[in-house]
Design a protein around this nucleic acid. Structure first.
Lengths: 304, 304
DNA sequence: ATGAAAGCGCTAACAC
DNA sequence: GTGTTAGCGCTTTCAT
């Protein structure tokens, strides 16, 4: 042992994996590395993996389901399991993958796979309550990608909670979850005479704010804007963006934790981890300054 | 072959690497995945690696030189080479690494290793000329990490070009290359009565703008701000940040290209690739509205 | 307890 | 050209 130490001996993982069948690697698939949402998750995942002596194989599917499948296939033999973030693949394909490998999915429910989910319903409830408290009565929602589980959940949360609070909702989109899409959505919002809007994610919300400011519309003076995710940029924008904070690092950590457990006890049941979210109120939301929704045909509400 | 295809046969890379000594993997080390500068490079690197059938091992050194060394050591046996971004390690340690493995470094010059460099001198020249043309005569520079090659180069570029244009410079810092550091730097700038400031990177520049705005100082009305890198956020801020654009994706691609070449011909010489940069003029810079630098002891210049 | 050997899935070198 | 075999560096099993 002393000599081995002397010579800086390190076992070859390739050789080891040949006999054990385990590689000590985890594959992480994200749809877009440039999106801070995913780099946030990735950062947490990487840190947690290292703690359990796993190395990370990284792949970017560029939002492309075919490429996603291809990448998984290619990596399959050199990893023990996968973390797939916001899969663009269809349910059936994912369920097929589950048979050959162990995987944890983020923001998606797949039978046979553990998942880490964001409590979108709670996030939406917090956002809607906040806007309702500020006197907004008609709320726009900028939809994200149609196939996204998060988008469906957020939309559902919006509808449920808006009804509870007697609010009207206007759904716009779907849009791609980008800054640019937010910019173009801003004009649609203006055309609809809305006083408050919730975007599918921060990137879009930031785009909305940017375009509104460029058009001389005050945020939050005339329109309140709420985002989702709390990417670092959200706190840097002017005004600072009110948003539903999703704990990105912890999400990545939780996912790897689940995966490592699963790998240690392959027979054990899959788990589902729901991450709590928290509305962060910043400068992009304020009281409704229009007495009533201008898009509404009813006159002022008197004697209420 | 037909049968192999039928059974979806894929060779085991572990077994293959055992005999060939090649793994088909590349290790990529970044100091902070959360920094969009690095995720931009990473995205390009990942795409280029895939084109040459290399998979990416990812590690985040958390700006920690010791951890950086440790990670390289751990990955060494399972990769053919490394891309190390903005290494925090000392020259001697890097030169030692070069002996055992092939590596490409980003934004650093190491004998025996290929490198991808950003043309910081040109970037600084463009930034200084821009500010000089706007009538600024005294320019602040917010220094980044002391050990950073980029920081030293940018500082050098600043000094040279400022002299050429007869400008005075004020160096502040060093700061960590973050938004928060930029915020705190903003107050120092105000105390120094500067009309223009160049930050080591966009994150800091954004922090400066945010804090200045919060203090009621107009950008670019009273102070012009220039960043470096052109991370996506730069174009989203209000006002949009004038910055020296570094082609992040191409930088990552170029680095992997160099590495792949090196791996194919181990005897060949190392290369150095210098990336051109381009000043992007946006809304955060404007004409100097003070007749002369207020920090100057000279009185108004008359009869000129 | 310590030591020897088989074999994981490939590739490369050799024989035919 | 086609087929056989040794051996890459480990782990695990079996024998001592």
């Amino acid at each position: 042992m002393a000599v081995a130490d002397e010579l800086h001996y390190r076992p070859s993982r390739a050789a080891r994996s040949l006999t054990t069948g385990k590689t000590g690697n985890i594959g992480v698939l994200v749809p877009d590395l440039g999106n801070p949402f995913f780099s946030g998750i990735l950062k947490g995942a990487q840190a947690r993996a290292r703690e359990s002596n796993y190395a990370i194989f990284l792949a970017d599917s560029e939002e492309n389901p075919r490429l996603e499948m291809e990448l998984v296939r290619e990596m399959a033999r050199q990893v023990d399991g996968f973390l797939i973030c916001s899969p663009r693949l269809g349910d059936s394909q994912l369920e097929q993958l589950v048979r050959d490998t162990t995987l944890v999915v983020m923001n998606r429910r797949i039978r046979g796979a553990s998942s880490v989910l964001v409590d979108n319903a709670s996030g939406m409830r917090q956002a809607v309550e906040h806007l309702a408290a500020l006197g907004h009565t008609r709320i726009g929602f900028l939809c994200g990608p149609e196939r996204s589980w998060s988008n469906r959940e957020r939309l559902r949360g919006l509808r449920n909670n808006a009804r509870t609070h007697g609010l009207e909702t206007v759904e716009l989109g779907p849009f791609s979850p980008t800054f640019e899409a937010g910019q173009s959505a801003a004009d649609l919002i203006l055309a609809r005479n809305l006083t408050a809007v919730i975007a599918f994610n921060d990137l879009m919300a930031l785009g909305v704010m940017s375009r509104l400011t460029d058009r001389g519309v005050s945020v939050p003076g005339e329109i309140s804007v709420v985002g989702f995710d709390d990417i670092p940029m959200a706190g840097m924008a002017a005004p600072h963006l009110t948003t539903v904070a999703v704990p990105l690092g912890p999400a990545g950590r939780a996912a790897i934790e689940l995966l490592v457990e699963q790998l240690a006890r392959p027979q054990a049941d899959q788990h589902e981890e729901m991450l709590a979210v928290q509305l962060i109120v910043r400068g992009s939301t304020g009281p409704n300054t229009q007495g009533h929704p201008t898009g509404d045909v009813r006159g002022p509400i008197l004697g209420h």
